[in-house]
Simulated assay, not measured.
Amino acid sequence: MAQAEILLDVKAALGEGPSWDERNGLLYWVDIDGKSLLTYDPATGEQTKATFGKKLGAAVPRQSGGIVLTLEDGFYAYEPGMDEPVLIGAPEGLSQVRFNDGKCDAAGRFWAGTASLTGGTEGALYCMDTDLSIRLVLDGISCSNGLAWSTDNQIMYYIDSPTRNIMAYDYDLSSGQISNPRVAIEVTEAGAVPDGMTIDEEGMIWVALWGGYGIRRWNPHTGELLLKVDVAAEQSSSCIFGGPEYRDLYITSARSGLTEARLADQPLAGGLFIYRNAGQGTPTYAFGG
Rank of each mutant, 00 (worst) to 15 (best):
A2D: 13
I6V: 10
I6T: 05
S19M: 03
S19T: 01
S36C: 07
T39H: 10
Y40T: 02
T48I: 01
A59L: 15
R62I: 00
R62N: 15
Q63W: 02
S64A: 12
E72P: 03
E79H: 02
P80D: 00
G81H: 00
E84T: 11
E84W: 06
P85T: 06
P91D: 12
G93C: 08
V97E: 15
F99Y: 14
D101P: 08
C104V: 12
C104N: 11
G108L: 07
G108R: 10
F110I: 04
T114N: 08
G119S: 07
G123Y: 14
L132N: 09
L138F: 10
S144M: 07
N145C: 11
G146L: 09
S150A: 08
I155V: 14
Y158C: 04
Y158E: 01
I159F: 11
D160W: 04
S161W: 14
S161H: 06
N165A: 11
N180M: 05
P181L: 03
P181A: 13
I185K: 10
I185V: 15
V187L: 14
D195Y: 09
I199A: 15
A208E: 13
W210V: 03
G211M: 02
G214R: 00
I215L: 06
R216S: 02
R217W: 12
R217S: 08
N219V: 01
P220N: 14
H221K: 09
T222A: 00
E224G: 08
L226A: 05
S236P: 04
C239T: 09
G242W: 09
G243L: 10
P244W: 03
P244Q: 08
E245P: 01
S253M: 00
R262D: 05
A264V: 06
Q266R: 11
G270Y: 14
F273A: 02
N277L: 02
G279S: 09
G281R: 01
P283T: 03
F287R: 02
